[in-house]
Structures are given as structure tokens and as C-alpha cells.
Amino acid sequence: MNLKNKSDEIRIKTLEIHKRAKETRVASSLSPIEIFVSLFYGNIIKFNPKDPQDKNRDRLIISKGHGSICMYPILADLGYFDEKELLNVGKEGSFLGSIPDPLIPGYETINGSLGHGIGVGVGMAYSLKISNLNQKVFIVVGNGELQEGSNWEAIMFAKQYNLSNLIVIIDSNKKQMLDFSKNILDMEPLSDKFIAFGWECLEIDNGHNPYDLLDGLNKILTNTKNTPKVIIANTIKGKGVDKLEKSPLAHILSLSDDEIEFAIKKIKDKKD
């Protein structure tokens, strides 16, 4: 499978969802697309669409839940639910809300309140470890939520108990709700912080190259050190839409129908 073409396909479908459901956080959902594509189409994560609660599955905690509308077309494509349901996002009676929750097959946790994903994932990883089970826990987080102290308590706990079955992936798009993160509370360099807490750290310069991400994920997974691991994927908030890429307020912006169609055309023209 061509992972770049799959990423373009998912980006187009994410924009189409936003066209039908303008309340969705489109900028936040455009930056982690290649992360999810690499996980699901790169044979990284163990999953079972026929039984989303399969005891042998790896766990995926999407801490930045509002920024994962791009997961909807991925889950539909993989057979978790009928692709026709993508037409109903945000509508009354649909389980596909503007913020995902565990009603959606493939989601593990409630994702409305940011900053809890690492803590929840660490608990899962600890439970799996003491139960002598081999499943891994992947956690996808954003920049802004890492400013919350509870994350760092969980990060310390993960090292204390050497949770080598834990992989955090940071969708590092350098923005949060109302500005660039550096202007609100600068957390850089993130890599130094995780290393200081005893984690194995790998930084991906271009988080929109799924093959670079895939290489990084494979390196992390074959790392035998008995310690938790983190991948920092440098991404662009609103990737593929010039207006969103440039704006410090991309998080809260919606796109007009014309802007969406222009962005889709640009993606299709690039592929041709």
C-alpha cells in the first residue's frame, strides 16, 4: 500500500466531514493523519475490526480526541463500521460525534477533556505488565495538553515501573487553542524533558512523511531497553490548508465550503 496516497485520501475525507459538520475541529484533525495511517496501515498496531474489544488488541488512547476526526474514515475503511455512517457525523442519532467517545468502535476512552490520556494509558500499560500480557499501549497527545502537570506525574510513574510496553506519540504541531504554544507556555525542547525523565526518545523531523514515521515506530518497537518510549512527530496544524497552516488561531477556525473544495482540489492536483 502507498501510505502517502492513503494519507491524501484520509485528508480529503476529513475535509469532506468538516464540510458536513462544521463544528468539528478540522485543523487539529489534519495534523495527525500520517500518524494514524502509519499505525493502522503500516502493520504497527494490533487490532480487530470484527471484535474491537479483542483481548489481544493493542490499546490506542487518543488523548487529543477532538483532533482525531480523521480517524473516522480510517475506522470505516478498516471495517469497524459502515462507511455510509461518515455522512452522519454530528447528526442526531449518529454515534459519530464532533468529539469522539467509546460509543465508536475502535475508541478506548472518553476524549472530551484534554490532559488525561497519558495517565489513563499508563494505567493500562501497568495493568498489562503486571498481568504478564504482551499487548502494547499507544497514546497520541497534542502540545497544549502537555502543559498540564498530571501528564508529568504519569510520565514519572511510567519510568518508575519501567513500562516498556508504553509508546507515546506527540502530534507536535506547535499550536494550541489560542496561539502558538511557545507564546502560552513554552515546553521546548520536549525531547530533553522526556530524556531527563528516563524515557527513550525519538524525534521525527517530518511528521507528514508516513514512511519516516513508520521507520521511527519500528525503531522504537525493536528497542529492547526496559523503559517507556516517546516519538515526537513534528507536524503542521491544519496541514493541507494554507489558511489553517498560517493562522495561530487555526484550532478554532472553521472553513467555508469554497475553502474546503479548494483544499481538496489542491490535494487531488498534487496526486495527479
Rank of each mutant, 00 (worst) to 15 (best):
L163W: 02
F138L: 03
N183Q: 13
G121D: 07
Y107E: 06
V168K: 00
S164A: 02
V122H: 05
V141N: 01
P52E: 00
L78E: 12
G90V: 09
R59K: 08
Q176D: 09
S63T: 08
D58W: 02
S63V: 10
F180C: 09
L78G: 13
P100M: 06
K64G: 00
N134F: 10
D51P: 08
G121I: 04
G115S: 09
K182F: 15
I61M: 00
A125L: 12
K50D: 14
N173W: 09
L163D: 00
V120E: 08
S68A: 04
A125I: 06
M187R: 06
S172Q: 13
L114M: 05
G117A: 03
G67K: 11
S98V: 14
Q147D: 15
S131T: 08
K91Q: 14
A125Y: 10
L96V: 01
G142C: 04
E153K: 01
L75Y: 04
A154H: 10
Q176F: 05
E148R: 11
K159Q: 14
E92G: 13
I118P: 01
V168L: 07
I74N: 09
K50H: 15
G117L: 00
E83H: 05
G79K: 09
F157S: 12
P105H: 01
V120K: 13
Y80I: 04
M187W: 07
I167D: 10
G90R: 02
A158T: 07
I169A: 07
F138H: 04
N162L: 13
V89M: 03
D179P: 04
K91D: 05
S113A: 05
A158P: 03
N134I: 15
